[in-house]
Amino acid sequence: MRLEPVAAPGLARTLGLPALAIAATVVVASALAMLAGANPFATLGLIVKGAAGSKFAALETLNRATPLIFTGLAVAVAFRAKLWNIGAEAQLYAGALMTVLIGTQMGLPGPVAIPAMAIAAVLAGALVLLGPVLLKVRLGVDEVVTTLLFNFIMLLFISMLLEGPLKDPMGMGWPKSEAIPRDARLPRIVDGLRLHWGFGLALISAVVVWVIQVKTTLGYEIRAVGQNPQAARFASIPVGRVMVKTALLSGGLAALAGFSEVAGLKGNLTLDLSPGFGYTGIVVAMLALLHPLGVVVSALFVAGIFVGADSMSRAAEVPTYIADISVATALLFMVLAILLTRFRVVRG
């Protein structure tokens, strides 16, 4: 078989194939439910209901989507420049760590503390990604592996702090930090509704990233470097410097996920702050075709699957990992579908 470009893909092709990818994912999820001895329609119904069936469910999905928007944006920004940042998890924890440090140690009043925590978080996240990117730009060390390995190092580092200097003395022996004071928490968007301003910040970030990508020179340079680094170099774009700027942006965005989880939702730092938001961000970004506004939509979709599956598995005998499998299959089917919108498979 061979791939041949499709000259002018029709609407049926550009919309139909991605829809088919989602349909195929639903088929896989149904098969998994049947494997668990459950009725697939009932299972899928419970997932949808658990994700969006009530005000509580919908707010839960929005809350879960918040860190995913940040990590999704972080990945989308980096992947555009073909900077393979797989370390959003480490950058998230760096952001969470700075948030807790500033929030609990400095004694700042709330209106000062919140921006201080956010800025410190962004700086820390940017710094964490700076190392692997400098290694890539200067020495040609592959950033996929270094950013991945940094995730493990960072988690151990956090664990060390939580069992040492940052340990909450009132924590009954659990490795967790002290909580940041009430007035340094992100307020709720609407009184009485369990949704904090982290979600608002995530939406704003998506718009800002989109503006950067379409309206600024940096956005143009990032695209150029991603599409063809040699050509970009010929056009006298400083490829290394663009990579570093991209990394600072990407790391900072991922760190905001940590900031928002701590300051908006949890209040303190624990080792299970993120159930892999950094890795899921990769799926979110890919499903959004690396488009910053698309990231919001796909983060809501992915968050809905996870929240829905959590709720479903409490009612039915289907393990919650059905969500992880579905998300992974959606990713693989979707990248294939997107390819097939532009290429046709021919024999020979």
């Binding site: 799926v283 890919m286 393990p319 992974a328 299959t329 390819l339």
Partner: peptide, 24 residues
């Protein structure tokens, strides 16, 4: 290989798929 999709993305996807399949 035949479809020539990004080896980074597919690889990470396979890791997610295989891990969650084992857990499921």
């Amino acid at each position: 290989v035949p479809f020539g999709l990004s080896q980074h993305v597919v690889g990470l996807g396979v890791t997610l798929l295989a891990t969650s399949s084992a857990y499921y």
